[in-house]
């Protein structure tokens, strides 16, 4: 039971990061019906910029409290990522808004490669160790002294994610910009006729998504203690799968999808080995029983398939429920 609770805690923390990244995909998709392929790399840039700032501040000898350093680092990462997001939109999407669908996709892939390699040149190929400035405090969740625990960092990540989602919902449903965004999402032409500057709204959407991504990058970096120029690729793919799971274009869906994806991954990696353990079938075959005597962990799948779960979920959702869990729109068949 302790193990299960611990896996849930791991999954929810990971899921919170996915959720924040998934929001970026879903917002852009909602408004221009395109997948922002380079979104994962924006997350990476956020983590990298924050790393540099933390390294400088922590090494400068200024006795700043750890949280202040983290906050300053995040505040530095956000504008950089917003600039990257804006550039992405200007270079890859705006000029090709009316081109065939393939064109902006390919440009975005190109930009993703460029972002990664620029990051490689600036921050080197080596994995960067995030300075451990926040002292980890562990809280016990069960009476068992060796049982499930949660750390202050995990609490912080989950809390911050909830705050950011709430903020985003307020922005979309309670502000003028939010109304404009929803209008453009429904029908850009008509929105334009109503006096909305479509280009500005789309740019803003990209920038908000990028800002969220940068925070996700800082969270991921400080949680796992490592940043790498290729970290955005898998993170982005999984977050995208999460957005599709929740129903792409739907903000609540992205959050739900993200959380679920995190939990699926944690539980999957934790339990798939036992679920597919061939030794349960030892009674059926003597040869199998013999192998199991020597190797009780003989399983068809193990934790090595952890990265596959997200894709399998993605394919299953697309086949059986393309609109996702909360999405209303059926993905159009153009």
């Amino acid at each position: 039971m302790d193990t299960f609770i611990q896996q849930l805690v791991n999954g929810i923390t990971l899921g919170s990061v996915y959720a924040i990244v998934a929001l970026g995909y879903t917002m852009v998709y909602g408004i221009i019906q395109l997948i922002n392929f380079a979104h994962g790399d924006v997350v990476m840039i956020g983590a990298m910029v924050a790393y540099s700032v933390i390294a400088v501040l922590a090494g400068s000898g200024m006795a700043l409290p750890p949280l202040a350093i983290l906050a300053i680092a995040t505040l530095c990462a956000v504008p950089v990522c917003m600039a990257v997001g804006y550039t992405l939109e200007r270079v890859a999407y705006r000029p090709l808004r009316n081109a065939p669908r393939l064109a902006p996709l390919i440009t975005a892939i190109g930009l993703s490669i460029i972002l990664q390699n620029v990051a490689l040149i600036i921050w080197s190929r080596n994995p960067l160790a995030y300075p451990q400035i926040v002292e980890t405090v562990t809280y016990r969740l069960t009476p068992n002294p060796d049982g499930a625990t949660i750390t202050n960092v995990q609490v912080g990540i989950v809390g911050l994610s909830i705050l950011m989602m709430a903020g985003l919902l307020l922005l979309v449903y309670r502000t003028k910009l939010g109304i404009a965004m929803r209008a453009v999402a429904q029908n850009p032409q008509v929105a334009g006729l109503m006096g909305i500057d479509i280009n500005r709204v789309i740019s803003m959407t990209f920038m908000i998504g990028a800002a969220l991504a940068s925070v996700a990058g800082v969270m991921d970096g400080s949680y796992y203690g490592i940043a790498h120029y290729q970290m955005g690729f898998l993170l982005g793919l999984k977050a995208f799968s999460a957005a599709v799971l929740g129903g792409i274009g739907n903000l609540g869906g992205a959050m739900l999808g993200g959380l679920l994806m995190g939990i699926i991954e944690a539980l999957g990696a934790g339990y798939v080995g036992e679920l597919t353990n061939l030794c349960h079938l030892s009674g059926w075959s003597d040869a199998l029983a013999q192998r199991c005597a020597n190797d009780p962990h003989l399983a068809v799948f193990g934790s090595n398939y952890q990265d596959v779960f997200a894709f399998v979920v993605l394919i299953l959702v697309l086949v059986f429920r393309p609109s996702g869990l909360l999405g209303e729109r059926v993905s159009d068949r153009a």
Binding site: I35, R101, L102, L237, N304, F311, V312, L318, R333, A334
Partner: peptide, 27 residues
């Protein structure tokens, strides 16, 4: 599905095949 979904699903498929090739040494 639409073109961009296809792109990302094929991307995932490519990774799945690689992961399977890498891990199909057991059982």
């Amino acid at each position: 599905l639409r073109g961009d979904y296809l792109a990302i699903v094929t991307l995932g498929f490519g990774e799945i095949v690689r992961i399977f090739l890498n891990n199909l040494s057991s059982p």
